[in-house]
Write a protein that binds this DNA or RNA. Structure first.
Length: 435
RNA sequence: GGAGGGAUGACAGAGCGGCCGAAUGUACCGGUCUUGAAAACCGGCGUGGGCUUGCCCACCGUGGGUUCAAAUCCCACUCCCUCCGCCA
């Protein structure tokens, strides 16, 4: 949620920032008007309530003095004022609700260095990395045997079974088997082990309350992209960011315990309602996938370092796996609702000949913390909202795809990078002939 | 799923419908005393909101209700504990 106090203090700046992301100034004018009206009604309500409180106090006093006549007179008076108070507070409440509903739909202010743009074509590529680049290799090259899409290799090797997944849950629910399943497990173990030097490992629930989904900004705005378990009032999480952000919801943290760094590998569920029919082949876009998430609660002063840390960890994994990737700075048009600044990491998939998003590293400022009401007490005793930072490291199905394509051999087998050997029982070759 | 008990400030723990935002203790912060520390004593010590910055309003698990007035009475729900049933 944006800061209403900031909107009052510097309305022009807030409106200009939001206009960059397509929020109409008229909408913001409406919010401002509602805010003014709400405060007017609030004052009216509170002064009437103060009057009722005072009259009630006098009633009590009269009773103690056995002054029945005065007590009755004051009770009658208080009843009248109480009716007025009820009317005022109903008006105030409905105005407040209208204001809150609008505010919940307003996205975060983009950071000043976020470029303007309409969609992903306006994102800015910051850098690329490929194996051999550090040794002077100008560009990665790919042999014909690497130009085979992972769904073909996956079927050939019996490690990706899209038909079975579709039979169980419908299309875009893949099923991994054998070495393919083990590869995804290996990736998760590999990544988590590398994060445990600084991050606490969490296994959160993968269903969440509406309130939990509100805190990160996934509801109400992105309701069509979420799976719901209506009967129990629960939602399937689209990312571990959802439970991790709410883990300390409503708490006042000690500055000394910040940054709090959490990591979790969970299933992530996405209806992909807006992307129906696009990029649906193989593992390019799926409804359920496994991802390791890195998360930080931090002070505003720590936010830059936290962001850099998450990004560095995601990049380090990609480099360790030997995958070509690029780093993008998202433009205003491609930024998620809650984010002030996001870097996307995309791996190159030689078999499909496309870049695939495998991580999104975001700084949310205090936007999510305001919704989740997570604050910290500074050394001098004042209380401030924390900042939240998170990023994937990494989302596995697309990494799986890039690995199977990048490491495909002329004989059709796949030889995985050595870093995964300890997690694959020492066996890095996947071939049709069982070993 | 069934039966019972509980939910109050950082923690423990009081609280006859009115003078209760809330006793008391611990913890914490400041001071006196002390060479220093401890002890003792004194003072402070929740969060949010509004505006006329001095006041007002809200908050005792959550939501509703009764009342001039609710931490206190009534209803529903949530969570925790104990027991029974079922079960990975």
């Amino acid at each position: 949620m944006i800061d209403l106090v900031q909107l009052r203090r510097e309305p022009e700046f807030v409106k200009a920032s939001l206009a960059r992301r397509g929020v109409s100034t008229l909408t913001m004018d409406e919010i401002e008007a509602l805010d003014v009206e709400h405060r007017r009604l609030l004052q009216e309500t509170e002064s009437l309530r103060a009057e009722v409180n005072e009259l009630s106090r006098q009633v009590g006093e009269a009773h103690r003095n056995k002054d029945v006549a005065t007590a009755q007179e004051l009770t009658a008076k208080s009843r009248v004022v109480g009716d007025l108070e009820r009317q005022a507070s109903e008006a105030s409440e409905s105005t407040g609700n209208a204001l809150r509903e609008m505010l919940l739909m307003i996205p975060n202010l983009p950071a000043p260095d976020v470029p303007d743009g309409l969609d992903d074509s306006d994102n800015v590529e910051l850098r690329r990395w490929w194996v051999g680049m550090d040794e002077g290799l100008d560009a990665p090259t790919y042999a014909d045997c690497q130009r085979v899409p992972h769904w073909e290799t996956g079927a050939e090797l019996g490690i990706l079974d899209l038909e079975s997944g579709a039979k169980l849950a419908g299309s875009m629910f893949p099923l991994l088997r054998g070495a393919g399943a083990r590869l995804q497990r290996a990736l998760g173990f590999f990544a988590l082990d590398r994060h445990l030097d600084a991050y606490e490992e969490i296994q959160p629930p993968t269903l969440a309350l509406t309130e939990t989904m509100m805190s990160t900004g996934h509801l109400p705005k992105s309701v069509d992209d979420m799976y719901s378990i209506a009967r129990d009032g629960l939602w399937a999480i689209p990312t571990a960011e959802v439970p991790l952000t709410s883990m300390r919801r409503g708490e006042i943290l000690d500055e000394a315990e910040l940054p709090i760094r959490l990591t979790a590998q969970t299933s992530c569920f996405r209806r992909e309602a807006g992307a129906a029919g696009r990029d649906t082949r193989g593992l390019l876009r799926v409804h359920e996938f496994v991802k390791v998430e890195l998360f930080n609660y931090c002070t505003p002063a720590q936010a830059d370092a936290a962001f850099a840390d998450v990004l560095a960890r995601a990049e380090a994994l990609l480099q360790a796996l030997g995958l070509t990737y690029r780093v993008l700075l998202l433009c205003t048009g491609d930024l998620g609702t809650s984010s002030a600044r996001t870097f996307d990491l995309e791996v190159f998939s030689p078999g499909v000949d496309r870049w695939l998003e495998v991580s999104s590293v975001s700084w949310f400022g205090d936007f999510q913390a305001r919704r989740a009401n997570v604050r910290f007490r500074t050394a001098d005793g004042s209380i401030e909202l924390v900042h939240t930072v998170n990023g994937s490291a990494l989302a596995w199905p697309r990494i799986w795809a890039a690995l199977v394509e990048t490491y495909r051999q002329p004989d059709g087998s796949v030889i995985l990078p050595d870093v995964l050997a300890p997690y694959m029982g020492g066996e890095t070759t996947i071939s049709t002939r069982p070993v």
